[in-house]
Design a binder for these strands. Sequence first.
DNA 1: TTGCTCCTCACGTCACGTGAGGTGGC
DNA 2: TTGCTCCTCACGTCACGTGAGGTGGC
Lengths: 242, 242
Amino acid sequence: MFKVGDLARRTGVSIRTLHYYDEIDLLTPSYYSGAGHRLYAPEDVARLQQIKSLQALGFSLEQIRDCLQRRDFSPRDVIEQHLRRLREQVTLQQQLCVRLEAIAAQLRKAETVSVEEFLQTIEGMTMIEKYYTPEQLAEIQERGRQLGDEAIRKAEAEWKELIAQVRAEMDFGTDPAAESVQYLAARWMELLRSFSGGNPGIEQALRKMYEQEPGLRQQTGVDAAMAEYVGKALAAKKGSSA
Amino acid sequence: MFKVGDLARRTGVSIRTLHYYDEIDLLTPSYYSGAGHRLYAPEDVARLQQIKSLQALGFSLEQIRDCLQRRDFSPRDVIEQHLRRLREQVTLQQQLCVRLEAIAAQLRKAETVSVEEFLQTIEGMTMIEKYYTPEQLAEIQERGRQLGDEAIRKAEAEWKELIAQVRAEMDFGTDPAAESVQYLAARWMELLRSFSGGNPGIEQALRKMYEQEPGLRQQTGVDAAMAEYVGKALAAKKGSSA
DNA sequence: TTGCTCCTCACGTCACGTGAGGTGGC
DNA sequence: TTGCTCCTCACGTCACGTGAGGTGGC
């Protein structure tokens, strides 16, 4: 026969927890002393052990009560179902880990890490995940690893310069078939390939993302007009080589 | 300018959530209409997007508020720390998965699956984890897989019979050096080896578990007296061969 | 006038932690 | 009488969901 304090000390649960279990009828003491003190019998202690075991497996107190009360209870099904849920959770959390790692990698790559850049990085990630399939993302990440942070930084700088140069030619009204534009268009395709690896699915997703995200167009300076201009330049080249 | 309903529809969050964010000062609308209706400006929408992004990474609303408010906020540290916590969680959940799988395997092995057996299995698992190291557990599991369910069931039945036979000799008062007991002791060591694989750490953990768990002694019928009796028999054999 | 949207309470969730204020046995 | 343990409220947690009851603009 134990009083709450004794049982709490012996089993490592708190007194409040025992009170609570009593309150929700999960574990009611078999006896009470004259003064209204809870007295737990050995079978109550055993039940507490069972409760703790099931709780360690991640079951809710309600599930535990069902498990200990109901006669038509199927341990096998419950365990299997529980296992499925848990596996799903683990999968989701692992995906989250991958996302966080990608963000952490981005932050390490950047030199200054302002709050604004951080938020942009995150929103960028969220946006990107809307357009690429998981397989495409894995492929892009893998290519990024092989290129290395330094090469990626360099490519980003080159894109920036290239876009500015194309914009200048457009503003100047240069014919897309002109040699200077042909050179830029070729460089454009080169950089694009180093990102997409030539995977047409990735290039298509990228195009769609630019079409549907005005913020992205504004941020990079690549708008519909530029896409058309570069497209014409590439078509002119094709035409000349055919 | 959006009213709550508009913003809710456009972003997929509930009206109640927007009310709540207002209540905890996480996202307060920039304006109010004459009738006291919330009016959200474009920058409020942007802030909501940021909140959603950070929430998707698993941050609490309080962490998000800190992140958006404080100037001395270091995104890099927060992400790394968050990642560490998440990885820990995943590890714990994966361990839990392993436990549940072991229990599921046990349940499949048994023919009848009463609630009592289920609870015993779980309590057994919990107890076992207290005595063996994770490496030892992995080794035992691996050996179990190699033996197969059928062989394990057979070994368990043999243990039961062997223990009963030893008990009978003890009750009869047979000398541990007698041939009949020598045979039983040899069989004892054989079965023990098929469990421990000869790993002395596992055998030691097993002994300690039997010493410290009265419930286990009662359940199997292997008490201190029997351990001593078998020990004497083995010593007698050693003595005779030396 | 009828819908629709908006508003502000306010309770419920899950498994307790943490006092508050008071009683009974050594 | 002094500690110690026990008791019963009852609020707080986290991020909202879900009504209840009432108001304002088309």
